[in-house]
């Protein structure tokens, strides 16, 4: 399968490119990047073609594209690819507005192409196991969930609202919301959020605690802050603490780690668990090959984005808001 990558703005593009390179049936067939020097450098590194125009990449011998541009550019890039009949894996969040997301979903449907949103945490083996326990009734009736998806401030365009659509809340709400929906087959109906910029100098939100009511009666909170500092042993986390009538469950997607104390590299946690990105790319390719629905749809991306947008509306109004 010939895969093109649209932009290396998002760092995950490098992970995806490395995975593509690792598998014989997959080929990185070309790169487009608005940042020409970056695009040329990565194309040279991965021994693939660089295109200065998106339509050139889309006209080339490419079956599939991965969109890893800045969040606000997802819409234009996804819709251009859809119109060129390419199947698409779009980095999260799907877009920065619900309108963009809806247009993207409709455009992909109209053109008969597959659209998957990159929620790799669904592919984490400990997370999958946790869902299995929950869904088999191992906790009885679920009552509450405490989630975290904290991280290091990514800097760069992530701090430019016109490109990112928002800071930590936009970046880190969608993963856990997707897990809540996936674990419980429920939707978020009400949102309250405390959001602020308290850590970095840039005036964009880097701290957030989001509280959600789901339509199955469960309440959940999420810490989506970019609160991991330089000397913290890792970049961040994804954790869930699930409370049910028959028990509790705690899962940490990145706790399969070794503690390293190095005089040259400092203290760090080295992850040794399964690679969720790799499992996601392979499943995306499998869905295309089999012509089946992707595991994570555009609608899943939209539903998660809506909660992030609701969180911002709540913070601005100082009230709870209905999620829509």
């Amino acid at each position: 399968m010939k895969i093109g990558i649209i932009s290396f703005a998002h760092g995950h593009a490098y992970s995806y490119a490395n995975i593509i390179r690792k598998y014989k049936g997959l080929e990185l067939a070309g790169v487009f990047d608005e940042d020409e020097s970056r695009g040329r450098a990565v194309a040279a590194h991965y021994h693939t073609a660089f295109y200065t125009k998106l339509h050139h990449l889309l006209a080339a011998d490419v079956d599939t594209v991965i969109v890893t541009s800045e969040n606000s550019k997802h819409a234009q890039h996804v819709m251009a690819a859809a119109k060129a009949k390419k199947n698409i894996l779009c980095e999260k969040p799907i877009a920065t507005t619900a309108e963009d997301a809806k247009n993207m979903i409709a455009c992909c449907e109209a053109n008969g192409v597959l659209l998957q949103v990159a929620f790799p945490v669904r592919y984490s083996t400990p997370i999958k196991r946790a869902r299995e326990i929950v869904q088999k009734g191992g906790l009885g009736k679920i009552l509450a969930v405490k989630g975290t998806n904290r991280g290091t401030n990514p800097g760069g365009w992530f701090l430019n609202k016109a490109l990112s659509g928002g800071g930590a809340v936009m970046d880190h709400t969608v993963h856990v919301v997707d897990l809540l929906r996936w674990f419980m087959d429920a939707e978020v109906k009400k949102v309250y959020a405390e959001i602020d910029h308290l850590i970095a100098d840039e005036k964009i939100d880097d701290c957030g605690i989001v509280t959600m009511d789901l339509d199955n009666g469960v309440f959940a909170t999420l810490d989506c802050s970019w609160s991991r500092n330089n000397h913290y042993p890792t970049w961040g986390d994804v954790t869930l603490e699930v409370v049910g009538t028959e028990g509790t469950l705690g899962v940490n997607a990145f706790d399969q780690k070794i503690d390293v104390y190095s005089d040259t590299e400092g203290a760090s946690w080295k992850y040794w668990g399964d690679d969720m990105n790799e499992k996601m790319i392979l499943d995306f390719v499998d869905a295309i090959k089999k012509g089946r629905q992707p595991f994570v749809t555009g609608d899943d991306g939209l539903k998660a984005l809506e909660v992030a947008l609701s969180a911002y509306r709540s913070s601005e109004s100082g009230q709870t808001v209905l999620n829509s």
């Binding site: 009552l143 957030g208 605690i209 509280t211 009538t245």
Partner: peptide, 19 residues
């Protein structure tokens, strides 16, 4: 079920957000 559980978000005048 003889259980209880609560999650509380607190905003301080200093700006600190606590959970």
């Amino acid at each position: 079920e003889n259980i209880d559980y609560a999650l509380v978000t607190i905003r301080f005048h200093s700006g600190v957000i606590a959970h």
